[in-house]
Amino acid sequence: MLISALLTEIPVYYYVVISGILFAFGLFAVITRRNAVVALMGIELMLNAANINLVAFSQYDKALLSGQMTAIFVIALAAAEAAIGLAIVLNVYDRFRTVNLDEIDTMKE
């Protein structure tokens, strides 16, 4: 059934499953990594997962392409987020000499 479904057209739930897996991986990376740059990589994975969903359902909206438009804005936002995030990480490294997320706890004290 899995193979025969692929003969003509790829069902949209395949994309949903793939993006779900990708999102779970991104969440895992954000929670478990100590290094701030790798946590940012996890955020990029999650944004990509969301984009796959948007574009997959956008196939059924040829006239307006709302999903693809949203995906374009998400990509632009991701670029801005990466730039600002890394600037903050660089500043944190300059001040604390570390980018381990659990060691930067000055505001807790």
Binding site: F28, I31, R34
Partner: peptide, 16 residues
């Protein structure tokens, strides 16, 4: 990079 919170991370990712 060091790895922390593997239990909570697997729980959250698996739940998702």
């Amino acid at each position: 990079t060091d790895v922390v919170n593997v239990g909570w991370g697997s729980l959250a990712a698996g739940g998702m």
